Amino acid sequence: MISTDEPVELGPAVRALDAARSVTILCHVQPDADTVGSGLALALVLRRRGIPVRVSFAEPAALAVSLRTLPGAELLVPPAEVPAEVDLLVTVDCGSAGRLGALGDRLAGAGTTLVIDHHRSNTRFGAINLIDPDAESTAGLVARVLDAWGEEIDAPVAHCLYAGLVTDTGSFRWVRPGTHGLAERLLGTGIDGAEISRGLLDTHPFGWLPMLASVLGSARLAPGVRGGIGLAYAFVRRTDLRGLGAEEVESVIDIVRTSAEAGIAAVFKEHRTVDGRWTVSLRSRNSGPGAADGVDVSAVATALGGGGHRFAAGYTAHGTADDILAALLAALE
């Protein structure tokens, strides 16, 4: 076992999985390694047990290149192939039904719904809600479920879980007691942690570099925000997105957040096709200057229609660049 002191009750989730005759696993829109890795790890175990299982996400149309080498990727199906009815529907790393996008309508056709997540802002939209806001990743929570279920975490499952763990901890920058123990256990199955990390975090097309030059060149600092904690922000315009995938765009926030003069970072990303629609990523410090002030960006994001974690959150906004910046500044007052 990873821990003998479980902060959440795992029994209902384990019993639902054990009794399921067919399973659909849904990841959130614009899926990252934690949602896909968690979903595929669970799916691999279910397939091993002989249970029919499908994994899907609503958008975009194709999985990010960096995630296509995850074991079990063949279990991913397009939204049109997700059945309207299923014995058990599991969502992984989804803080609300809205994060399922167009696949949210599949909830109504499930005999039972199980939500596995670690977002503090989770709306508990399942019949069974396995939510641990203290978990460093949904992948870590899935590992605890598998342990409680008595299922082996073999190398393919470990690969998927490690992908979620390494990305959601920011290469182990944000950890909790037990995180490194879990990583050691997963690596002990023989997976190549360095290669997994390189493919997920350190490999980008050349076009990423001029995109960064354009976006970071327009970055701005608002030092007076939140009583002097400060906000660093940047806009990713539609013209910056040509030839790049969502993972390249998402990486910008992890650069903007390194500004020493700001305890809060924001990146506003213009939608590729819908005028006036933006997705916004927020980050705040969990150590060093600004951390003691307790900036909870999940509360800010929730107030603006989104959600997330205390130090990492996001939301969707509508309007001009000036409008959405003004709305964020007002929410941070």
Rank of each mutant, 00 (worst) to 15 (best):
G140V: 02
N122G: 04
T123C: 04
L130H: 06
V65N: 11
V77T: 11
E136Y: 10
T138C: 15
I116W: 07
L141S: 02
R106D: 14
D134K: 12
A163H: 11
T169W: 06
V65A: 15
A41P: 04
T69A: 12
G111W: 12
T91R: 05
A148F: 02
T169K: 02
D32L: 09
S38F: 12
V92P: 00
A127W: 04
D93R: 02
A108V: 14
D154R: 13
V55Q: 09
D105N: 14
R144M: 02
V45S: 10
A41F: 08
L161S: 13
L161E: 13
A33Q: 14
S121R: 04
L42N: 02
L89T: 07
D134T: 15
R68G: 04
V53Y: 01
I131M: 01
C160P: 07
P83Y: 03
P79L: 04
D34E: 09
S121Y: 06
F125W: 01
N122L: 00
L75G: 12
G109K: 13
N129P: 01
D34A: 09
A43G: 05
I116S: 06
L67A: 02
P52W: 11
L100M: 08
L89I: 05
F57T: 10
E81Y: 00
S38C: 10
D147T: 15
A102P: 07
H118W: 03
